[in-house]
Design a protein around this nucleic acid. Sequence first.
DNA 1: TCCATATTTCATGATTAATTGATATATAGA
DNA 2: TCTATATATCAATTAATCATGAAATATGGA
Lengths: 110, 110
Amino acid sequence: MDIKQALAAFAALSQQTRLDVFRRLIKAGEEGISAGELGEQLDVRQNTMSANLAVLLNAGLVRNERYGRSIRYFADFEALRGLLSFLMEDCCGGSTEKCQPLIEELVCAC
Amino acid sequence: MDIKQALAAFAALSQQTRLDVFRRLIKAGEEGISAGELGEQLDVRQNTMSANLAVLLNAGLVRNERYGRSIRYFADFEALRGLLSFLMEDCCGGSTEKCQPLIEELVCAC
DNA sequence: TCCATATTTCATGATTAATTGATATATAGA
DNA sequence: TCTATATATCAATTAATCATGAAATATGGA
């Protein structure tokens, strides 16, 4: 994770629809949610949703997979872990002995 | 932490200077860093830095305290913890038994 | 092959954010 | 009280982002 990626990730999460989408995908876990379902659930038009999903994809926060005619989206927990590590790097003067292992475990240990 | 606050926080972190500032403040811990020092360290003009610090303040990610003529800024670890909890809420279908305690411990256990 | 469904891509207008120069406020010390 | 230092505020310009209508692409089934 470099600063460019981190900035893209934070920018992606700084918009209502995209933050809603990402939180739903985190909740959905392995199952994921299709683009269409996300649009319905959040009452967002099809092309607007598509554009927002593209931003999340581009930021590396989600991945997708085609199933027939629909495309399912999934939160990328690995990326989220990387983002947190980047943010907390050298936390409190570099005494990462405590923080870093916690970050590694987090997101998503469930 | 509600969605408005979360959006403000992510927006604040989606700009290079502000992300740099926040990471430095996390590293600095209790000691904090003054506005002027931050401007020098990151080679950012005084009023630009001031505006960016105002954005971080407004997002609740940092707090400040006046010491004589200078004003020191500090990362608000509590706010960061709240942001992560918000993001990971209902992680993986609501099985937060594992995640939530980790989030609580994290940021900054050092 | 033709049609319907699911999704993405493109161009555009509208809103919002970022930086800057100039100025104002606040504190410390002579 | 005067001056220097540290920081914030204001107004204006430039730049980036967002939602939208229209059109394109991809898949599945009749």
